[in-house]
Write a protein that binds this DNA or RNA. Structure first.
Length: 651
RNA sequence: GCCGGCGUAGCUCAGGUGGUAGAGCAGCGCACUCGUAAUGCGCAGGUCAUCGGUUCGAGUCCGAUCGCCGGCUCCA
């Protein structure tokens, strides 16, 4: 029979040849890396026989599909190991996920995380034993009978769904473990060698909190021990950079039971970082045509009834009874900004009208979701609202996106843009008229197209009140985080009846955009801590310069130098402790101070200072002015966005 | 909120089967005056998360609460 290859070539093979045999015929290397095959467009196991005229592509760990097959097979290996160790285990589902796999199981007598080592050892044993993954095609009733005999109640439930969907049923056997599974899998367990179990957690069956909680075991698998150890090293690096560890260690913030779960107490060092960020943020916003405003932390609940939050956001709100009026601790800034918009009649000449505020909000979050700075109950949104006419949308969106990217570039974050649009098949639950959506959605795409930015369109992911652009930021470890977000709102302008007087003298519905570039200041700083591993750029460093006299002989000169550095506006500290210079350098390095000025007898005599940069070591001796230049370079604040475009005029 | 795990000095951690707490680092004091990531000696520091129970006796066993961690769910 004739088999076709991706490069267009073809070759003759005996009937019944499998993909694995084809791979072997190409090269030993390919055969050893092969995990699955794409046959006529669909992913198949390597051991299934090919048919005449098949187009085949061998899939390795390089391809997403190959990785998926290996990970999925590893989850079966995990299940097979658990099956051997814990009789009576009932299996849920065990899919591949990004970077690994998991399996959800109800394991009688499961001792917890301590069992992981034994399970992993059993997986190793099964891998060495090279047990085949055997594909069994059966019908629904056959599968039901088998699963029922095995007591696999969860699988029976899955079979009911398969029946409803009319799919065919396949089973995979691996040793004593028989699983309902669409496949495909690697041919045998020896293909799964470089794996590690990572954690154990609870997970609801079918993700439904009313259903049973199963034990979920997470693991990861790669095609080489190098790739596995690289991945584990990345996880270790992430642990080291964890902002919950570095934050308190560097004196940035603290949290705890006395202060309330999910509430952040900013220490002096952390407050320096906040203030630097906020100062830049305010200056950049003024330059980009925003009007900075300040709104109260509480407001009568009637305001939140009008905005709709009292009905759809109630569970997240803190209520404050006072006299006869109930107040609400603000969970969002928009109603406040709307009152400011409404404080006078607005003319089209004033538009676009941009408001911005570093507004601290409070939201009740379930205790289990709280997480360091990333998920808290009190945080500061760098909130902005743009009120504009339909004609101004494209321009405003383009400006906001480039403003967002300005901040990401300052910190060297990578990014990926997502455009979330409505589900056109079900417009019933969306606010705003369909024609408004029809007008705005293409405008968002236009703005992005016009900027030459790549973006991904996600249909049906829009909020009920409007379409949005989300920018995910990629940190130094390649991880993605929720970054800037730009959201249209068709709902609130209607609820508050927001209008402007047009050129024609009549009132028109205003278009409104919410946008946050940091998102929350807390979360953004959490991201910065992990992105820089605590080694902040000089302008953010809580302490920028440490002066280190070698002996008491230089204390006087060191104090002079410290005063001069501090006078130039740098955050500077003098370390005159009677410790060795090595000890004090180590202390400064551990505090991640960008610049150390070491002053010994030689420097004191010559009026020079020895400069040492954090992480780079000794740079040698310099005159004071030269050293100051180095400090200025290391601690220079980022430039503001280009000015001039937002010249303000009396309307 | 749910499941599982954890909670001993500021930090990192010891404290078999119950007999009333220990180290290193950090801090403070003294000595040392030192040349680029840990000088030596000494001192001080803990109602063993909190509350309740079992026991003659609880850091240790049981329960509740709080917080933290891993997930789930949620995230307008």
């Amino acid at each position: 029979m004739l088999i076709f290859f991706p490069d267009g070539g073809s070759r003759e093979f005996p009937d019944g040849t499998t993909s694995l045999e084809v791979a072997s015929s190409i090269s030993r290397g390919l055969a050893s890396r092969a995990l699955a095959a794409r046959v006529d467009g669909s992913v198949k196991g390597l051991s299934s026989p090919l048919h005449d005229g098949a187009h085949i592509e061998i899939l390795t760990f390089e391809s997403p599909e190959g990785r998926d097959v290996l990970r999925h097979s590893a989850s079966h290996l995990l299940a097979a190991a658990v099956c051997n160790l814990y009789p009576g285990v009932r299996f849920g589902i065990g899919p591949s996920i990004e970077d690994g796999f998991y399996y959800d199981m109800d394991i009688p007598g499961f001792p917890g995380i301590s069992a992981v080592e034994a399970i992993e050892a059993e997986m190793k044993r099964l891998s060495a034993a090279d047990m085949p993954f055997e594909r069994i095609e059966t019908d629904l009733e056959g599968a039901r009978r088998l699963m029922s005999e095995l007591g696999q109640t969860y699988k029976l439930e899955l079979l009911d769904e398969i029946e409803a969907s009319g799919e065919s049923v396949t089973l995979y056997r691996c040793g004593g473990f028989l699983d309902l599974c669409r496949g495909p899998h690697v041919p045998s367990t020896s293909f799964i060698r470089h794996f590690k179990l990572l954690s154990v957690a609870g997970a609801y069956w079918r993700g439904d909190e009313k259903r049973e909680m199963l034990t979920r075991i997470y693991g990861t698998v790669f095609d080489s021990s190098k790739a596995l150890s690289d991945h584990l090293a990345l996880l270790e690096e992430a642990r080291k950079r964890d902002h919950r560890k570095l934050g308190p260690e560097l004196g940035l913030f603290t949290t705890g039971p006395e202060g309330g779960a999910g509430l952040i107490y900013w220490l002096p060092n952390g407050t320096v970082i906040r203030e630097e960020l906020e100062t830049l943020w305010k200056a950049a916003h003024r330059r980009n045509g925003y009007n900075l405003v300040t709104t109260p932390h509480i407001a009568p609940s009637d305001l939140w009834v009008t905005s709709g939050h009292c009905s759809y956001y109630r569970d997240n709100m803190y209520f404050l009874p006072a006299d006869d009026v109930e107040y609400v601790l603000k969970p969002m800034n928009c109603p406040g900004h709307i009152l400011i918009y409404k404080s006078e009649k607005r003319s089209y000449r004033e538009l676009p009208f941009r408001l911005a505020e570093l507004g601290t909000v409070y939201r009740y979050e379930k205790s289990g979701v709280l997480h360091g700075l990333m998920r808290v109950r009190g945080f500061t949104v760098d909130d902005g609202h743009i009120f504009c006419t339909p004609d101004q949308i494209v321009e405003e969106i383009r400006n906001v996106v480039s403003f967002a990217l300005y901040f990401l570039r300052i910190f060297n974050f990578g990014y990926a843009i997502e455009l979330s649009l409505c589900d056109p098949d079900d417009m019933s639950h969306y606010a705003g008229k369909p024609e408004m959506w029809a007008r705005v959605e293409p405008a968002l795409a236009d703005a992005l197209d016009g900027m030459g930015e790549e973006y991904r369109v996600v249909r049906g992911e829009a909020a009920f009140y409007g379409p949005k652009i989300d920018i995910k930021m990629r940190d130094a470890l390649g991880r993605y985080w929720q970054g800037p977000t730009i959201q249209f709102d068709f709902n609130i302008p209607e609820r508050f009846d927001l209008t402007y007087t047009g050129q024609d003298g009549s009132e028109h519905r205003i278009y409104m955009v919410h946008r946050a570039l940091f998102g929350s200041v807390e979360r953004f700083i959490g991201n910065l801590i992990e992105h820089f591993a605590g080694n902040f750029p000089g302008w953010l460093a809580p302490l920028q310069v440490v002066i280190l006299p070698i002996t008491a002989q230089q204390h006087e000169r060191a104090a002079e130098v410290a005063t001069m550095v501090a006078d130039r506006g740098f955050r500077c500290s003098l370390d005159r402790r009677s410790e060795t210079i090595g000890y004090r350098i180590r202390a400064a390095e551990n505090r991640k101070v960008p610049i150390m000025l070491v002053i010994g007898g030689r420097e004191a005599d010559s009026g020079r200072v020895a400069v040492r940069a954090h992480g780079r070591g000794d740079l040698g001796a310099f005159s004071f002015e030269e050293a100051l230049g180095l400090i200025e370079d290391a601690c220079r604040r980022p430039a503001l966005p280009e000015g001039g475009r937002y010249l303000s005029e009396i309307p």
